[in-house]
Nucleic acid binder design. Sequence first.
DNA 1: TCTGGGGTCCTAGGACCC
DNA 2: TCTGGGGTCCTAGGACCC
Length: 438
Amino acid sequence: MYALIDGNNFYVSCERIFRPSLNACPVVVLSNNDGCAIARSNEAKALGVAMGAPWFKIQHLQESAGLVALSANFTLYGDISQRMMTIAAGLGPQQEVYSIDESFVSLTGVRGDLIKRAQTMRSRILQWIGIPTCIGMGETKTLAKLANHIAKTAERKPGLYPTELAQVCSLSHLSAERLKEVLQRTDVAEVWGVGRRINAQLKDMGIETAWDLRASSASALRARFGVVMERTVKELQGVACIDLEEWPANKKEIACTRSFGQAVVSLEPLIEAVSEFASRAAEKLRRQRSLSGQVLVFIRTSPFRAGPQYSQSITLPLLRPTADTATLVQAAVMGLQLIYQGGFAFAKAGVMLLDLRDEGFEQGELPLGLETSLYTRENQTPKALMQALDQINQRYGRGTLALASSGSSTKKKIWSMRQERLTPRYTTAWADMPVARA
DNA sequence: TCTGGGGTCCTAGGACCC
DNA sequence: TCTGGGGTCCTAGGACCC
């Protein structure tokens, strides 16, 4: 038996903790460059604001409907998330933090009235942190996810489901007929693992609802869709195929990519951006005590805009796996210079660290023919220097200390062109947020 | 003017091996 | 009729998640 605890409209709810005046307003939180909506309050959803809606398309709702837009503050959300997860962990013996706003909790061995227990947990998180949540429970993770969807929907759109399923919903506590009714009212697209493409194909086959999918043959669907879909069907049927992952595994790839606020038409700002991306990726790499054996860098124009399109990437193998910022930045910039072509308006760039391995493994093979200074041992900055760099940046804030190669620009960064104010009255500098940054 | 930033897993097909 | 039969490794692309 599993529970899934999920913060409602999480980023919006985080903002509302500090600005209760937003409580009844339609609110959206915007992505990095204020490009598109990545979180919406119920009121914003009711206005028809879609997930990922570009800001310039919904901006008019500020005037016409009182929509409030906020620039995202991920540092704040991370902090609130940690507090929420710590409390949620009390629901059962094991917890998997699945995303910034969701965690699965195993309820194995937990006795008593599970629904009451979940309701208590819900009020506790609301009271202690100020985040409204919904909790779904079921025999498998897929069923817990689905129950969570039902709990949220029953609250937000009364009428579709029985009202007593709002906020806390356990599919395991429903009678067979009741379960069938509820699943028949649930679109198959809401099932965890059914995305846009598979949804369309299932609909073509006449599988419309979660109930239809549950009633299907797992092996028949495997033949058409593969083993992932087979697992989904079995999980819907109550056969657990997906385990709880209590200890998050190290990443197998680490990326840092950004869209630019304005098109970039020359090499210089790209070098600066790519240097910073490589540097941030290197920090993440060291945080999980890994080394990278390959650096990928890409640049691309915007598919949404007219004009000549260009999208290119290159992967550079490193002589020895490393977590050294200087080496990784140098590789990324070298790659950029190899793929850069003038005459295009670039909209996005990124760096990915690939071929990751544990820190202990320092020996690499020596690719032949790679003899630039990049690949000499002497070029490696001492590890202690990287540790000092990370500690200083952690204590005093990102960017306090950076490598000189990242460029000396004091001008505004091209990948961070967010407005300080969107809906003027509401946006505050995040330094003002009353949350300890430690 | 203006369209996010991360990740994972699976599969098919090609290269290569004996 | 039938064009060997397995293996492994790598990569690209598709699909999904939040």
